[in-house]
Amino acid sequence: MNERSRALTALANERWRISFWLTSAMLTIYFGFILLIAYNKPLLGYLIAPGLSLGILLGALVIVAAWVLIYIYIRWANTYYDKQLAKIRGDEQ
């Protein structure tokens, strides 16, 4: 294995690690919400403000959480990952 392919494998592993943590975060948030629905219905029916139940707020927040996780990934990919890749490619020349 030469140095470049070692760097590529390392970058691939790093990529999968980030992907794994972000995917786990999404799974935890979504299934946490589902489990609350299944096991603690009264809690989700609790009114925070007139018209706003905790369930509706958390539901909307799950969608927002998906956006936030995607934002984190895009930032990581655009700033760190793309640069590392360019660096490995640059070594070639």
Binding site: F33, G59, V62, Y73
Partner: peptide, 14 residues
């Protein structure tokens, strides 16, 4: 509606 959205981050990450 929430279930149909949460697959998209998975598409992105993996």
């Amino acid at each position: 509606s929430i279930g149909f959205l949460v697959g998209w981050p998975v598409v992105m990450f993996l």
